[in-house]
Design a protein around this nucleic acid. Structure first.
Lengths: 311, 311
DNA sequence: TATAGGCACAACCGTTGGTTGTGGCCAGGC
DNA sequence: GCCTGGCCACAACCAACGGTTGTGCCTATA
């Protein structure tokens, strides 16, 4: 199936005759006839009934028409997604299941007319470079890297402090706890195989470890979220941290427990980064939306590294 | 933009290299290279960065990828819509704003996995012929034509009695009424330019006219719903009938009034028609859904022609 | 019955898109 | 540091697709 052919089909359906569609498309009537015939041959059904004064859609043609229009719209959107200038707002998030994705979904609900492209870049280095080059418009990053302040031309605002919860299997010693303190976690094995050395994730958990004397293991290959959850569910001595808003998809019978952490509650400080001079109109809308919807969080009783972007 | 090229792009992005994508698509590596180069030339952006051991997506490529996948899905759905056997369930409705569309939206919400194609055929003759030929699976029709019973192989069930309301402009004599009786409408001009002679609509209103002595005008060209509403809103002496569930889109300042009709309330008897031997699995689901959601309506105080499909 | 409008078929031809052959580039191993 | 293997790009060639012109047929309409 060829998009030009589909375009021809839609034009012919709208015009009600091949001649007029041909004029619109600046080709001959014979070309339209051949294209439609080829499309009908490919699909194996007749799309038009040819009459003495034109061509009208068969029932198959009527059923096909909205799909054809949708196909053209999809093509238009695909092209627009990389068109320089006036392309959709490009925002980088950590993962598709993070709280950041939730924020973006909320933004999309509030502004369904604003075209969005959500990507997942590797780390904050890549993200900052992409922002500076104009390849992306904004990035949700947890934190700035310690000792390495953001460049002058990158602005940022902290938009969400997401409490971390302990995720355990049903046989874990703390599985029945309604909440745990950071002190109680001393000696327990916390496993975070998704942490890539050198990223801001590592810096965050390094600080957490040194300040509260926890044991966090980042060893072992990361086989993905599913494998992590499987292991957590089956291993009584193992637990992991997970953002309160992180959406999980796991088999219901795993019996995983989410346990709030207190005294203090470690929070993951999601910030929005963007370029000072970025003129994308939707960027201002996004910033305003985030400012309006994430205001008024209480920082009392929470912990975050000192080097993060201040509130 | 060509769909084969987009398919190639997705394959290359998934494989991480052109060579493997070429093998999957059963073409040479050079062909893949040329296709990607052509796509990049068309879009005006680089989609891959070529490395010594493959090709990885640029940020533009990452933004484009989900759109490309959606494009292919749309193409797949478009093809499936006319594939004989196992195509989406095809249902014919009166108009996109009728109560029937509301029923289908409800069905889609209840069964989002069932693929649907909604069409609007001309009249019940066409619909019955389409059902018998297998071109469509079901049709929402108000009624059977009087004196012309449905063929043996067409089954039907009445799914919704939709009360008719009077629609008037703000200056109409009845505009302030909280409800009107059919008797009160004698002498008032009811205008229904959408009624095509020979269709079951006409038969319905003919019966309504003869039984209650109304004056219904079907004269004049039908310029569409917008023009009808404009005229109704501006003409004090004119009113029209409209289904209670019909969704209107009109400028808010028109001041149109919807007035319930009583003693009796004329109801438009929407029925579902289908072929006795239609094996489409979703058809049974649709019938079950309609039976479950539209049961228990009260027929007391309502009027419908005697020749309609009985409840 | 003549006419006009519209679609399909045939012949022709240029361009597109595939293949084979080859060269360049980069990473890893000796 | 050089060789080698893996991968992509460029060039030449060729078939096939898709466009055009020319023409015939069909069917509403006068």
């Amino acid at each position: 199936m060829d998009l030009d052919t589909v375009r021809t089909f839609v034009a012919a359906a709208d015009a009600g005759q091949f001649q007029e569609a041909a004029a619109e498309l600046a080709v001959t009537q014979q070309a339209v006839s051949k294209r439609i015939a080829a499309l009908e041959r490919n699909l194996g059904v007749r799309l038009f009934t040819r009459t003495a004064r034109g061509a009208e859609l068969t029932i198959d043609g009527q059923a096909f028409l909205p799909h054809a229009r949708e196909l053209l719209r999809a093509a238009e959107r695909a092209g627009a997604s990389v068109r320089p200038g006036r392309r959709p707002l490009r925002v980088d998030v950590l993962t598709s299941r993070s709280a950041q994705s939730g924020l973006m979904r909320g933004f999309h609900r509030a502004h369904p007319d604003i075209e969005l492209d959500v990507l997942m870049l590797f780390d904050i280095e890549t993200a900052v470079a992409a922002i500076r080059s104009g390849a992306i418009d904004a990035s949700f990053r947890a934190v700035a890297a310690p000792g390495r302040p953001l460049p002058e031309d990158i602005e940022s605002v902290r938009v969400l402090d997401e409490p971390l919860q302990l995720l355990t299997g049903p046989a874990h010693a703390l599985a029945a706890a309604r909440s745990v303190t950071l002190a109680q976690l001393t000696g327990h094995r916390i496993w975070m195989p998704g942490i890539v050395p050198g990223t801001e994730w590592t810096a965050y958990y390094d600080d957490l470890v040194t300040e509260f004397g926890l044991t966090i293991e980042a060893t072992g290959p990361n086989f993905g979220s599913d494998a992590l959850l499987d292991t957590i569910a089956d291993t009584p001595a193992l637990a992991t941290f997970m953002g309160e808003h992180t959406r999980l998809i796991w088999p219901a019978d795993h019996g995983l427990r989410r346990i709030p952490v207190t005294d203090p509650t470690p929070v993951y400080p999601h910030s929005l980064l963007w370029h000072r001079d970025n003129p994308h109109p939707a960027l201002a809308t996004l910033r305003a939306h985030l400012a309006a919807t994430t205001a008024g969080h209480d920082a009392a009783g929470t912990w975050a590294p000192r080097w993060v972007i201040p509130r």
